[in-house]
Write a protein that binds this DNA or RNA. Sequence first.
DNA 1: GCAAATTAATGATTTATTCAAG
DNA 2: CTTGAATAAATCATTAATTTGC
Lengths: 175, 175
Amino acid sequence: MDEEMSGFGLKPSRSGGGAKCGRWNPTNEQVKVLTDLFRSGLRTPSTDQIQKISSQLSFYGKIESKNVFYWFQNHKARERQKRRRVYVEYDQNDHNVAKQHFAEVTDTERVIETLQLFPVNSLAFSDQSEKARAITNDECKENTSPYATMYTCGTEMENHYPHRHPSLDLRLSFM
Amino acid sequence: MDEEMSGFGLKPSRSGGGAKCGRWNPTNEQVKVLTDLFRSGLRTPSTDQIQKISSQLSFYGKIESKNVFYWFQNHKARERQKRRRVYVEYDQNDHNVAKQHFAEVTDTERVIETLQLFPVNSLAFSDQSEKARAITNDECKENTSPYATMYTCGTEMENHYPHRHPSLDLRLSFM
DNA sequence: GCAAATTAATGATTTATTCAAG
DNA sequence: CTTGAATAAATCATTAATTTGC
């Protein structure tokens, strides 16, 4: 445990000398390793871990400890934010959405009420085919209700969890 | 070919009578509305929104809720794919490789803040919080900023829409 | 000009993640 | 640690564009 924890803090980092100055630009390999670590469960690496990760990743290119620190902080926050945004959506709709996206509420009945909202003019060149389609009642069975059974076949799916298990071991292997 | 094709370049669309029920084949109007919604910022409509959109679009032709759901999923994913492809091109010109990976993780969901075609105020997707960007010192504002140049890429589909352009007053009440 | 053959788009399914509740 | 909820990525599959030979 290096007492250099302060090293993570906002050092100018201009050290690069030549090339482009500025901020760290991770290589593909670095991002892959970091993402794997994240996926394996690592969220808030300790100082010790950060330095070891950074050391390993320096093999692939220029990197500093603080880059690793910030990467985890940002990645964690943004993943959470991404999820949070979805939840907010549902709250505002005040319906728990479930997966009834396919609820098939679309019946042409009530559509007629809303016709006025759309400019009828635009149908001038499509009335023959498109309008007919709307009026025609569907004879063909087309709804195989795909998703309804998606998760019901539980026995098979539950067994496969490729990346969830290695968890900590994977993490240590890099350090 | 269908002689109808001569007029406005509409797709043949043998959607009329017999119509084997294959997959959904959106009309130009439907695609235009969906694309406008997407460009205005909507990316993951809720069930409620999906149903209303579907209901509105059913005026232009046969459509189901799941079609709207799939359309947004696919369009979102493929726009992202396109963007990634541009990054790759940047890679070849400039060995700033890994930047796109970071962008990939960070993602740029919030794209458009303009285009107030309809009241999106109370909408779910209005959260834009990707501002906090400069944590560290940005001495060198070297900004390759590929983003700025590529927002013009909004799919070439909506371009060949006839000059009729019914001023889509979508006014979807849910929004 | 016209279809058969081929290629490009894109609709629909499946698979693998994520966070968080139990 | 396990599982529920909800995608987003990857993939499959079908339709439309187009190319090609006649």
